[in-house]
Design a protein around this nucleic acid. Structure first.
Length: 734
RNA sequence: GGGCAGCUAGCUCAACGGUAGAGCAUCGCGUUUACAUCGCGAGGGUUACAGGUUCGAAUCCUGUGCUGCCCACCA
């Protein structure tokens, strides 16, 4: 046994230790079974890593995610469970594509359309590969004990098979359909975006009051109003009782004399403006719904590039961004402009992935129908019989309402229910190139679904790709081999915990529940643990533009991975945002060093102690313990029990804090200080030596999930006997 | 407009019905053979505000005020 260095040096330790773990093969539960470290029949515990996007680098949110999941994984592994944690990355179609497009413009002054689909995709794949390697390197730096032999990618071959199978199944069932519906169109990126990817921004715009026959209508966007020929009011509005549903009136409008039709609809807010509005169904969701209810004509006003069509007469071909002042002048000259309110706050929909202003359009797209009734195809999901009629929406509600899935913290269950209740059909087709191309083939009026072209000439595959969340939705089971009936799928699904940020509860968590219940007939996971956002010390979001980003890799280099992990765990209750500062990380670096020096002290004070195995239970030495030492031991036993209970309850912050406090302020400050005297008395010496070794050994075990590197290093240098496995797979001491 | 969370020592948070705690920061003292990435000690809070329930309330109830977040088709 060599002497420990004066201070703990994470930089020298961490890479070495991670390599040791990897070499052992113990991240893979199969190896643990083979080497009889765990029983084949042991209870499975599984987590699938939320796949980081291959768009860039790891941020503190990822680091927090890795820390939490690794703690759970290491804890359950030490409890002897058959523990699996699967790594992977997400191709993140739209985010990655837009990133590469930006690089192309900046570096080569070219666009994807100029390059062509094939060449562009080559570039994206190369970028994704590089990005992947960087990210996975960072994941390892955090100490994550992932089973690398099972690594997955949302765009690899196995996952493609899962996507195609899922699509085909849902299409056959009629849960996926193609239709002309109003979608969120991003004219800048030339693609649709889902409702959830929209970010609303407030903007001060002029608000125009226009004369529409006998009515006054208000609009913040007069440039959409060219084709308006329906005027809508509430059926109960007393001001307009003389107008009847379907009544036609003649009036002067932008392009000349038109015939307008009166529509009565309860969606109108009588208190807003004049209580009357005209509708533009092609470019507004509300208007589209009204048109649908009353079976009205729809007409496109704006093309997909954002330019006005011929209906705009003299304004045709002008981009909507430029047309407003020109139009306002004309309306004024025609006497149609009654008033302009200059300080109106309008909400603009933008694409959160690329920043383009959304222009709703009616387009032919692919959708998942969340309301359609179908017979449930599986047996074994509690509360839903095989063959029972249900909908995707009902399934999503059912499994959470019946507590088959538990969401932590609980308050997010309400948010989840509310979201589902408002859920509309999910538009899954995107006009981008990077992603799973829709497995549908067309020839004249024929349509076929499948991964490869049907036999015969003239088949064309749908050029669109699927929303990235379609493949992410399959993640818990596609990573385990579905649609093949693999051993892994049988053993590890449903997964135990899904740990992710509360900001993607809807995007992702809800969609996994949808896909898993329908396709596998199982819940995807039992517990959803939602962590908060990592913010700067003033509580601001970390962002490049503010320049307040704390990089996990920098923190690891300066203070070590263990310190970085603790700084992200302590003080972070589920669902609550965490304020992080470099000072915090520094503080926990000190803790790692403290632990190191505790080990040094114990080492120095016990060199003459005839040691059996301190990691074994108290055993027969118990009888010889002094009164003080018995007390130390019983206090420590309480800590062990408490920490175990806290981890089981997912109160990791409290568990880590309890250990931190015990280690430093009880064990070091009280027990060790006291030992300086106790060890000088030959009557009390050996009892105390025994206790020091015992508590240190167990403390290393308890702390290992939280600070894996320093605990493993101490164990390796101090306590490991030749034929023993690393601390990582030693038994939890309770 | 609807909903959710928070408001406790300078800062970050814990106590969730029984005399208000920790870490960091501050100040004083100390040690240099476990650790200065250290030890001992001190100061510092009518727990946002106003009512109520209770023998007793940060803790339960009602209301108010801020702060933050989410949802929503006000043209």
């Amino acid at each position: 046994m060599k002497e420990l260095a004066r201070a703990y040096n994470p930089q020298e330790t961490e890479n070495k230790i991670y390599k040791l773990w990897e070499k052992s093969g113990f991240f893979n539960p199969d190896v643990l079974v083979k080497k009889s470290i765990i029983k084949k029949t042991a209870k499975p515990f599984s987590i699938v890593l939320p796949p980081p996007n291959v768009t860039g680098t790891l941020h503190m949110g990822h680091a927090a995610m890795l820390a939490i999941e690794d703690i759970l994984i290491r804890y359950h592994r030490m409890r002897g469970e058959r523990t699996l944690w699967i790594p992977g990355t997400d191709h993140a179609s739209i985010a990655t594509e837009s990133k590469v497009e930006q690089i192309l413009i900046k570096k080569e002054d070219t666009t994807r359309h100029e390059l062509g689909r094939e060449e562009f995709l080559k570039r994206v794949h190369a970028f994704a590969k590089e990005s992947h390697d960087g990210i996975m390197h960072q994941v390892k730096k955090m100490g994550a004990s992932l089973d690398w032999s099972r690594e997955a990618y949302t765009l690899d071959e196995d996952r493609a098979l899962a996507v195609q199978t899922a699509f085909a199944k849902m299409y056959t069932e009629g849960l996926i359909y193609r239709g002309d519906r109003i979608v969120n169109w991003d004219p800048k990126m030339q693609t649709t975006v889902s409702d959830d990817e929209i970010e609303w921004k407030e903007q001060q715009t002029p608000f125009y009051y226009l004369k529409y026959g006998p009515f006054t209508i208000g609009s913040a966007r007069p440039e959409t109003k060219f084709g308006d020929k329906y005027v809508v009011m509430h059926p109960k509005d007393k001001r307009y009782t003389q107008y009847k549903q379907g009544e036609q009136i003649e009036l002067d409008w932008i392009g000349g004399r038109i015939t307008a039709t009166i529509i009565k609809d309860t969606s109108i807010d009588m208190d807003f403006g004049t209580g009357v509005m005209t509708i533009t169904p092609w470019h507004d969701k509300t208007d589209f719904d009204i048109a649908l209810r009353h079976n009205l004509d729809t007409e496109q006003i704006i093309d997909q590039k954002g330019k006005l069509l011929s209906v705009a007469g003299e304004f045709a071909g002008i981009h909507i961004k430029k047309v407003r002042p020109l139009l306002a002048r004309k309306l004024d000259a025609m006497g149609l402009l009654e008033k302009v309110d200059e300080n109106y706050t309008n909400r603009i929909a933008t694409n959160s992935r690329g920043g383009g202003v959304i222009e709703p359009q009616i387009m032919r797209q692919w959708f998942i129908d969340v309301e359609k009734e179908f017979p449930f195809p599986h047996a074994g999901l509690p509360g839903v019989e095989k063959g029972q009629s249900t909908t995707l929406k009902k399934l999503m509600l059912h499994v959470v309402k019946t507590k088959q899935i538990e969401i932590l913290p609980k308050r997010f269950e309400k948010t989840y229910f509310h979201w589902i209740e408002n859920l509309r059909d999910w538009c899954i087709s995107r006009q981008i190139w990077f992603g799973h191309q829709i497995p549908v083939w067309y020839k004249d009026k024929e349509i076929k679904v499948g991964a490869t072209s049907p036999t015969g000439e003239g088949w064309e595959q749908d050029p669109d790709t699927l929303d990235t969340w379609f493949s992410s939705g399959l993640w818990t089971f596609s990573t385990l081999g579905w649609p093949k009936k693999t051993k892994d799928l049988q053993t590890y699904h449903p997964t135990s915990v899904l740990e992710t940020g509360y900001d993607i509860l809807f995007f992702w968590v809800a969609r996994m529940i949808l896909m898993s219940t329908y396709l596998v007939g199982e819940i995807p996971f039992r517990t959803v643990y939602l962590h908060g956002l990592v913010r700067d010390e003033q509580g601001r979001k970390m962002s490049k533009s503010i320049g307040n980003v704390i990089d996990p890799l920098t923190m690891i280099e300066k203070y070590g991975a263990d310190a970085t992990r603790l700084s992200l765990i302590i003080g972070a209750a589920p669902g609550n945002d965490l304020k992080l500062s470099e000072d915090r990380v520094r503080g926990y670096r000190n803790f790692a060093n403290k632990l190191w020096n505790i080990a040094r002290f114990v080492q120095m004070s016990t060199q003459d102690f005839a040691r059996e195995s301190p990691l074994q239970s108290e055993g027969d030495s118990l009888a010889k313990l002094s009164k003080e030492d018995t007390k130390i031991l019983s206090d420590f036993t309480k800590i062990k029990k408490e920490v175990t209970k806290l981890i089981e309850e997912y109160r990791l912050a409290k568990a880590a804090e309890t250990l931190y406090h015990y280690t430093w302020h009880i064990f070091a400050d009280k027990v060790l200080e006291d030992s300086k005297k106790v060890l000088e008395d030959t009557k009390t010496k050996s009892s105390r030596q025994y206790i020091l070794l015992l508590v240190l050994g167990d403390l290393l075990l308890l702390l290992h999930p939280f600070t894996p590197f320093v605990t493993e290093e101490i164990y390796q240098q101090l306590l490991l006997t030749d034929n023993k496995d690393p601390l990582m797979v030693q038994k939890w001491p309770i």
